[in-house]
Design a protein around this nucleic acid. Structure first.
Length: 344
DNA sequence: CTCGTGCA
DNA sequence: TGCACGAGG
């Protein structure tokens, strides 16, 4: 994941209202994982229904999207498909870390180490098949389109932005840029409150806009070179090169031009198939896009999924749906005069 | 993460 | 009205 790139990438701070009227492709797995990690009790216990099934992702998906729609923002969620073969070691590595975190979570809870338990609980998050299915179901009930990518979701989200199906793509890591996404958004959330690590304090986090061309120009490199920099600092498909951070990687690539020349000039070979890794970003599987369609929310269906199936409070859900209804009426009233069909 | 309550 | 903090499922 291209998170280390953040150190050399310039972002512009936005407010949510800057995004009103915009269509945005959202990396679904990325979003669900962040909900599973954060929506927990202080000791790391996730929200569950009476049958013990985790519901943190549904809570996050519901309230986040109610707020986006209320602000006139149209999200479309892109789900990951089959991971590229080169990702297998990374997937396995994450599984090992997650399983260890789960054991540590149970221990820390028993010992009453609340803070340790919270951290371990967060790191133990697992995204299961049923979670994928029911989050899709909930989105569809909200009238939000869902796209199943053949492979990496970020690749399809980037393609959607590049081909003008959406205005931007939203994700927490910078891989979108490597996939040639012209505009990407970080921190697409509402309250903008994030816990500062280890303390109990919160700082506000605003959405940020990152422009690909502007950043390439500022850095004086091409996208191909940005990909080489990403490979040097480590991707999902290769380990980082020891001793090379984003700043050094930038210097090296600017000085030598590309990874081949760095190898020649240094007289050592990299121990990963960088040409194959480049291909993942430069030529992701071809995907025929269709224009995403947003429809009216179906309150009955939403209440069935959340309240009947998963024990959410009927009054809370209804209250949010009413708020959304009012906001949508206003949005539609001010543009074209159509009213919401089949909504209350 | 976002909501709702309670207190300044 | 604004912020802090605990609850939500």
């Amino acid at each position: 994941m291209g998170t280390k790139l953040a150190a050399i990438i310039e972002a512009e701070t936005l407010t949510l209202s800057d995004l009103t009227g915009k269509e945005i492709a959202v990396d679904a797995f990325n979003t669900i994982y962040s909900f599973l990690a954060t929506i927990r009790q202080p000791d790391g216990t996730p929200l569950t229904d009476r049958q013990g099934r985790v519901t943190s992702h549904l809570s996050g998906m519901f309230y986040r999207n109610i707020n986006l729609l209320e602000n006139g923002i149209n999200p479309v969620y892109v789900y990951d498909g089959k991971a590229p073969k080169l990702k297998a070691p990374e997937v396995q590595r994450r599984r090992v870390i997650r399983d260890a975190a789960y054991e540590e979570w149970k221990k820390a809870k028993e010992d009453g180490r609340i803070e340790d338990a919270r951290k371990a609980g967060q790191a133990s998050s697992r995204l299961t098949g049923p979670m994928i299915d029911e989050s899709k179901e909930l989105l569809q009930a909200l009238g939000i389109p869902v796209i199943q990518a053949p492979s990496e979701g970020e690749a399809v989200a980037a393609q959607m932005a590049r081909e003008g199906f959406v205005w931007a793509s939203a994700s927490q890591d910078n891989d979108s840029l490597l996939y040639n996404c012209p505009r990407m958004i970080r921190n697409l959330s509402i309250s903008g409150r994030r816990r500062v690590s280890r303390t109990k304090k919160y700082k506000s986090i605003d959405p940020e806009l990152i422009l690909l061309d502007q950043n390439l120009q500022l850095l004086g490199i091409t996208r191909e070179q940005l990909i080489d920099i990403a490979i040097l600092v480590g991707t999902d498909y290769n380990d980082s090169v020891k001793g090379i951070g984003p700043k050094t990687a930038l210097k090296l690539v600017k000085k030598h031009g590309n990874l081949e020349t760095i190898e020649t000039d240094r007289g050592t070979k990299f121990d990963f198939p960088y040409d194959e890794i480049r291909e993942i970003f430069l030529n992701p599987p071809k995907f025929d896009l269709e224009s995403p369609k947003w429809t009216d929310p179906q309150p009955d269906e939403i209440e069935r999924i959340l309240c009947k199936e998963h024990d959410f409070s009927e009054s809370r859900i209804q209250k949010s749906l009413e708020r959304l209804h009012k906001a949508l009426e206003e949005i539609r009233g001010s543009t074209h005069q159509s009213s919401l069909s089949d909504f209350f």
